[in-house]
Design a protein around this nucleic acid. Sequence first.
DNA 1: GAGCGGGCTTGCAACGTTATACGGTTCCGG
DNA 2: CCGGAACCGTATAACGTTGCAAGCCCGCTC
Lengths: 354, 354
Amino acid sequence: MRVSLKDVALRAGVSIKTVSNVVNNYQHVTPAMRARVQQAIDELGYRPNMTARHLRKGRTGIIALALPELGNPYFAELAAAVIDAAAEHDYIVLLDHTGGRREQELLVSQGFRARVIDGLILSPLELQTEDLEGRTEPVPLVLLGERHYDLPYDHIAIDNVAAARAAVRHLLDLGRREVAFLGSRPRRNQPAELRVRGWREELAAAGLPADEGLVGATDGWGHEDGARAMARLLDAGRRPDAVFAYNDLVAIGAMRVLSERGLRVPEDVAVAGFDDVVEGRYGAVTLTSVSPDKAAIARMAVESVLSRLGGEPRPGGRPGGEPGGEQQPPRRLTAGFSLIERESTLGRASTPGR
Amino acid sequence: MRVSLKDVALRAGVSIKTVSNVVNNYQHVTPAMRARVQQAIDELGYRPNMTARHLRKGRTGIIALALPELGNPYFAELAAAVIDAAAEHDYIVLLDHTGGRREQELLVSQGFRARVIDGLILSPLELQTEDLEGRTEPVPLVLLGERHYDLPYDHIAIDNVAAARAAVRHLLDLGRREVAFLGSRPRRNQPAELRVRGWREELAAAGLPADEGLVGATDGWGHEDGARAMARLLDAGRRPDAVFAYNDLVAIGAMRVLSERGLRVPEDVAVAGFDDVVEGRYGAVTLTSVSPDKAAIARMAVESVLSRLGGEPRPGGRPGGEPGGEQQPPRRLTAGFSLIERESTLGRASTPGR
DNA sequence: GAGCGGGCTTGCAACGTTATACGGTTCCGG
DNA sequence: CCGGAACCGTATAACGTTGCAAGCCCGCTC
């Protein structure tokens, strides 16, 4: 924070702008001049002050990513993918977590946590439509995940209903008939709605009743929640022959309880999860899971948010700005998924690769 | 990025500085004036431009955290702890990952990835002492993790040797005599050194030979690496009755292989890991593990790095700055740990809580 | 009623950078 | 040898904010 363009200019005996031109690799600088300036730069150990550059350019090169929690490996893995996708565009990621709490999500959406960013990628759990309607924050916002909002913001997700149906279909194809769903959230505003719906639809398509007694509610979506929901179901005297869980953590928690109760996976109960986290690939029983294309989600999210800031590259820029950008209608981008079948439904004998 | 102090001042009919005073809650502003300015602020929807503020103040309110990889839940959980610790001081965290590659770690340490930060917390794996010796970057750096560098930077870690000894001691107390170590890294520069040393020392203390044939080398420290190392050991005809792994992922990978080979944990082979990641608490066999105090590590790291930037709060500030700060000698801060004993050493019968 | 002190408000000058507009070279063909 | 067009470098003015120091005004005191 000490040596500035001015110092370099003084030393090299040129104007500030010339030094700036050299630093920015401006085309029309004679090699001789470039060398002379570069020498002054090296001698003084000049480093550009990014803060000043950002003030001048009106961009910071930072996007924020706000996730419910990093403890869930799905989000940790997604964060890694976003960091990489952002790096592709020379962007850096500011990370925040909301705990999935509406209050905190609201704060983040309004930029009260991070106010130095060009754009925001938010993965909400409890945020309500009305929370976002009053949003005045000028930085572009892109939403991630299962929840749909009828608002002018880009949204990126996989087809949750189709993915859930594929998982349930797989369980039914194995001959299972009592398929439980673990991880709904009845009292709240149903973030798990789409996956429950997929479960319901696929059962209906198979001519089976969607037994609401087989829906296990949870408070959160961690191991503990899955374990509790599974225990509750069993304690209620239910004995499903298959479980489709809201996510992998819930599934793993459930498997733990099944094993404690002496039930074998998959012989007695087949289990399928959602997210395809690494953790599911190395348990005693590897976990069948819906695998969202995280890299695609990350890429879409970053490109989406960056495409929205074409408007005002610099403070004094022309009002119109580049053609692309912030005036496009909101988009619903759908990333792909696949169902990875592992031991928790197939059994160990026919174990495929990891 | 549109309405500035100037606009608000114009509207309220006061000077720019007065608006600034209101925004910053300066003491000597009459309530009437404050109300008038506030109204103009609300009417125009003014939001302070943080970039300009930072340029002026010489601080950004951002610290960077660079970790090997987020896919490892230990680092993900640590990141969450750092975000919270930073929030306590009104700081925001810029997250980066290095893949544990020296090249990338060097880049980060020199500030080439993120250049808008007040401080940097780096958890290196392969970085060499000489890489850091030539560091000219002016922002304070704090190092995390097992590796020790004889350099003027704060370092935060748990006592790895003692922790490893505690784990091995536990295995020996159970009557095990052939304790393998999984996760050394022979060809590289031995980041696992301290934990291997702990293993060696504790065996020596028990009067047992440290059988180098029971040290399983790995390339990385993921599940896959643990699985491979375990398989290699077994394929070589070794049959240890206990395994101490460099970290939980290696331990879990090893347990998977043990189970595939028909060996029971802990009856045939007791397993202990390191990091106490959530994942280890919900497998079919819960994992005994050294549990570093992540919250303490995060808190120490944040406070450490922030304490170093007392020097130049603002560009035009007095040269001395506040008394505290950047001239203190480097510190070695040690966080606590505990050994959490679970089924992978105790067996299921006596399962304690999670 | 004048002097004075203290609380409120303001103008100015940075912070370090880039954009704009312009002045000075150089180099070519006519 | 000159006119003009590239071409290269410069001076100046922002970007939005805060710190400093000075100025104003009001009420209190003697």
